[in-house]
Nucleic acid binder design. Structure first.
Length: 214
DNA sequence: CGAAAGATCTACT
DNA sequence: GTAGATCTTTCGA
C-alpha cells in the first residue's frame, strides 16, 4: 500500500490567501496532470480570481451547493465544474476551509505531452489552440467532473510555481470574461494574463444568449 | 420541472 | 473577425 503524499506545505501556505492575491502569482506556473494515458503539462498564461460569497460573479455567491462545495474546502484542491452542456473548467481553490475563494485557469501553453493533448483536442489546428480558453485547457489536461475536489497531493496532479514570479511589467489585468451582471464589481481587475502570449483567450464581452427558437 | 450555465465549434464574410 | 447552434448538469422552486 503506497502512502498518499501530502500537499507540500509551502505550496499550501502560498495558496492559503485570497484569490486576487494568488492569481497573478500563478502566471507562468506549471500545471501537470498524469493519467494512465500519460502526462500533459501546461504553463499558465491567463487566470481569473473569484472572491467568494460576496462576489456576484462567483458560483459561491448564493452560498454552498453540492456543485461548488469543493470551493468551500481548504486550499490545494481543484474545483472542476461542467457548463454549457459540453465544457469543463478548472479552478484552483485558495484561502481556507469555509472561504469560497479560487482562481479559474483560463488559458495556458502546452509544454509537456503535446501529442496526448492533440489526441484529446481533436479540433485543435495548432499548438496555440490546445489550451487557449478554460474549456480547452481542461480538455487538454483530461480533467472532468470526476476530478472535482482532487488535491495537489500525488503525482496525478501537480502545481509547480515559477522559479521567479512573472515580472510586473509583463503582467496585465482587466475585467473578467463572460461574467454578466457584476454590478459594482465590474471595475475590479480580477483577470490577469501575460502580455504578448498567443495562448491568452481573446476578450469577449458577456452577451445575452438567445434560444434556438428565437 | 424549467431556466441558466465562468464556452467552443463551425460556417461564413 | 463575426455570428449562431450547441449540449448536459445543476440549481431553485
Amino acid at each position: 500500500m503506497e502512502a498518499v503524499p501530502a500537499i507540500p506545505g509551502a505550496l499550501l501556505k502560498w495558496l492559503a490567501r485570497p484569490a486576487d492575491v494568488v492569481a497573478p502569482g500563478l502566471l507562468g506556473a506549471q500545471l501537470l496532470r498524469t493519467t494512465a494515458e500519460g502526462s500533459v503539462g501546461v504553463r499558465i498564461t491567463e487566470v481569473e480570481a473569484y472572491l467568494g460569497e460576496s462576489d456576484p460573479g462567483s458560483h459561491a455567491f448564493r452560498g454552498q451547493t453540492n456543485r461548488n462545495k469543493a470551493m468551500f474546502g481548504p486550499a490545494g484542491h481543484i474545483y472542476v465544474y461542467f457548463t454549457y452542456g459540453m465544457h469543463h473548467c478548472v479552478n484552483i481553490v485558495c484561502g481556507h476551509a469555509g472561504i469560497a475563494t479560487g482562481v479559474l485557469i483560463r488559458a495556458g501553453e502546452v509544454t509537456h505531452g503535446r501529442e496526448l493533448a492533440y489526441r484529446r483536442r481533436t479540433s485543435a489546428k495548432n499548438d496555440t489552440e490546445l489550451a487557449r480558453g478554460p474549456g480547452r485547457l481542461a480538455q487538454a489536461l483530461g480533467l472532468t467532473l470526476a476530478d472535482n475536489g482532487r488535491a495537489f497531493a500525488s503525482g496525478a496532479l501537480e502545481l509547480r510555481l515559477p522559479a521567479t514570479p512573472a515580472p510586473a511589467a509583463h503582467v496585465r489585468s482587466g475585467p473578467r470574461v463572460g461574467v454578466s451582471g457584476e454590478g459594482g464589481t465590474d471595475s475590479y481587475p480580477w483577470r490577469f494574463w501575460l502580455e504578448g502570449e498567443k495562448t491568452v483567450s481573446p476578450y469577449r464581452a458577456a452577451k445575452p444568449r438567445r434560444r434556438s427558437d428565437g
